[in-house]
Design a binder for these strands. Structure first.
Length: 593
RNA sequence: GCAUCCAUAGCUCAGCUGGAUAGAGCAACGGUUUUCUAAACCGUAGGUCAUAGGUUCGAAUCCUAUUGGGUGUACCA
């Protein structure tokens, strides 16, 4: 039993004995004592006052006396207003530290038997990835790792949007203006090459619209009548009919895109256990529509279109199948959800998708629930905010997107320049330097994006480079490298215990308490699907270490062996938590930098 | 119009199921290196937590309204 639980139980007993009242355990409110007060654990006594019928101060004093009397580890207490601060004997903290935290596997949580699917990335194959996709990928990957760390079995899946009118646009533009250009002939990365033709299509299409408007057509008419869009639509029909030429062009161009994505994914450090392709799933869902009609969840309008009425749930009527019997977006999502469940039988399924689709997922989940799917309650939309530029939203057609590959290259270049300026790595091999620049650059980028609460929108200013100082990835990486250097200088041997009666400084005590929170931080971050809370915790840990490192004399020169070993143990545990926590964020920590 | 999310220091962000004097980083100013890596540390300054009510012993946090901003509201995906 840990000390916190011990205190809670004893407090309940105290209220029984002193006031003859039954205090519910949930009313015992514990928190870490603020550093400006004496003690480590604080009881907020206001909730107890109702039971004691005394003033907060008097109640706190009563409880303090009782706890000091009945709990061996409680050595002293003080009362500040309604707060009872308890001092715990330092040997308790040292024992806790040595038996739990000093283990390599500290922070890993045993299996909870849950199977979870995380769907993320889900790109379109008509253009390269941009900063918005980067946020999605990093978030999806990190949440997956977080859930694994919390004891779940995780399947990462990528549902690739590889078909549709937008893909045909790129194909058509390439046929018309491409002159047979390939990634090899142009030296362009495949996804960028295809994206180039998507932009060309849009430009030419706009020209046609303008021309038609000159002839007196309205904007809407012109958009529908432009020859290019008609050709693209014809191509889509040909694709659906299995036209050999179209299919083979489609395969060729998608192949270029996949080669390009593979490079970006590798650089981002993300991976997937399973790919789904919409070209295989876009016809799914019609069975589900039949099922819904049979169950009376859906209804058919006279024109043959199928709808669900969600007005009682505060939403609208929603179309689930067109009058001509073809699917809409939600049709295939219904079918795909069923297929994913049939494939994996997972308990929970997380969709990492931007908040512009909040409404869509609300409807999707509600429909599946109304269809009586037992697994519908395990569905969760991890909705994240858009990445904005100072100028506003990124728009691919207006060229205001921050390209993922460019950004990665810039981050690495910046890392190189900053590292060289510090002049610490001159003796590194070229290979080690390259690897270091990559780790630091990506560490800066990943931490920058992940430290912000997912649902909040995020501002990125391309004119200002991402920081490498303060609350940043490189700061945390640096702290880790510094600890590793210290440990190697001291010939550190892991896991050696010292007598639990050594003296601890205030900072050392604070460190132990902070470090001991790691498993709880993982659990709460996993519960909230939020790598951000973990990121901020790791930062606190790194900051605390640097404070400790500065205020004590050099450890390697420490003559008291027990104190030396204990300080090295503290350093090692810090590095272990940083490494493990950063790994969950998808960030590598160098051994030296 | 309706739905939904957001609003905290000059800037970017923390702030747990309501608890002590609202915290970090950047930028600004000052200091720290004969001592284990100064991508570090210490200090100064910076706030009507959008506004107004309400609930409570106690509200940045919960409720209501208002203002400002984002997103959605297609037989697009």
């Amino acid at each position: 039993m840990n000390i916190q639980q011990h205190i809670i139980t004893a407090t309940v007993n105290a209220v029984k004995e002193l006031y003859n009242q039954d205090l519910p355990e949930t009313q015992v409110n514990l928190q870490d004592t603020r550093s400006e007060f004496e003690g480590e654990i604080t009881i907020v006594v206001f909730p107890v006052v109702r039971f004691s019928k005394k003033s907060p101060e008097a109640t706190a004093n009563d409880l303090g006396e009782y706890l000091k009397e009945h709990i061996e580890e409680v050595t002293a207490f003080n009362v500040v207003k309604g707060f009872l601060n308890l001092s715990i004997v330092s040997s308790y903290w040292i024992d806790l530290f040595q038996t739990d935290l000093l283990k390599e596997e500290f922070g890993t949580i045993p299996s909870n038997g849950k199977k979870v699917m995380v769907e993320y990335s889900s790109p379109n194959t008509n253009k390269p990835l941009h900063l918005g996709h980067v946020r999605n990928n990093l978030l999806g990957y990190s949440v997956s790792e977080l859930l694994k760390a919390n004891g779940s079995e995780v399947f990462k899946v990528n549902l690739v949007n590889d078909r549709g009118i937008h893909i045909c646009k790129s194909m058509l533009a390439w046929l018309k203006w491409g002159n047979g250009e390939t990634p090899e002939s142009s030296g362009l990365k495949g996804d960028h090459l295809v994206g180039k033709y998507y932009v060309i299509f849009d430009k030419e299409y706009k020209k046609e619209i303008e021309a038609l408007k000159e002839t007196g057509q309205t904007e809407d008419e012109a958009k529908k009548n432009a020859p290019l869009i008609k050709e693209a639509q014809a191509m889509l029909l040909a694709w659906e009919a299995g036209d050999e030429e179209v299919i083979s062009l489609w395969k060729k161009m998608n192949g270029w895109v996949y080669d390009g994505f593979a490079v970006s994914y590798k650089n981002l450090g993300v991976d997937f256990d399973q790919y789904y392709y919409e070209s295989n799933t876009y016809l799914l869902g019609k069975d589900t529509v039949e099922e819904g009609l049979a169950k009376g969840v859906f209804f058919k309008k006279p024109d043959g279109s199928v709808w669900i009425d969600l007005t009682e749930d505060g939403l609208d009527q929603k179309l689930v199948l067109r009058a001509d019997g073809t699917s809409v977006y939600i049709t295939q999502d219904l079918g795909t959800a069923q297929m994913k469940y049939d494939d994996f039988k997972m308990d929970e399924s997380i969709y990492v998708v931007g908040n512009e689709q909040d409404y869509h997922f609300k409807v999707l989940f509600l429909i599946l629930d109304k269809l009586g799917k037992s697994w519908a309650k395990g569905l969760y939309h991890l909705s994240y905010g858009m990445v904005d530029l100072p100028s506003g939203k990124m728009k691919s057609r207006e060229g205001t997107v921050v390209d993922a590959d460019d950004l990665i290259a810039e981050m690495i270049a910046t890392a190189k320049q900053k590292t060289e300026a510090l002049g610490k790595v001159d003796h590194f091999s070229e290979e080690e330097k390259e690897s270091l620049y990559y780790k630091i650059g990506m560490g800066a980028l990943k931490y920058f994006l992940l430290k912000v609460e997912p649902k909040k929108r995020l501002l990125f200013d391309p004119a200002e480079s991402i920081d490498f100082q303060g609350n940043t990835g490189p700061f945390i990486q640096y702290t880790h490298a510094r600890i590793k250097s210290l440990l190697s200088k001291a010939n550190y041997k892991n896991g050696q215990h010292v007598a639990s009666d050594i003296a601890l400084s205030a900072t050392e005590l604070e460190m132990i308490i902070l470090l001991s929170r790691y498993p709880a931080e993982i659990a709460s971050a996993a519960k909230a699907f939020s790598p951000a809370t973990l990121a901020n915790y790791i930062y606190e840990v790194a900051k605390m270490f640097n404070k400790f490192y500065h205020e004590i004399p050099p450890i390697v020169k420490e003559e008291d062996e027990a104190i030396k070993q204990h300080r090295l143990n503290l350093s090692w545990v810090t590095s272990n938590i940083i490494k493990s926590g950063m790994r969950i964020l998808g960030i590598e920590v160098p051994e030296r930098m």
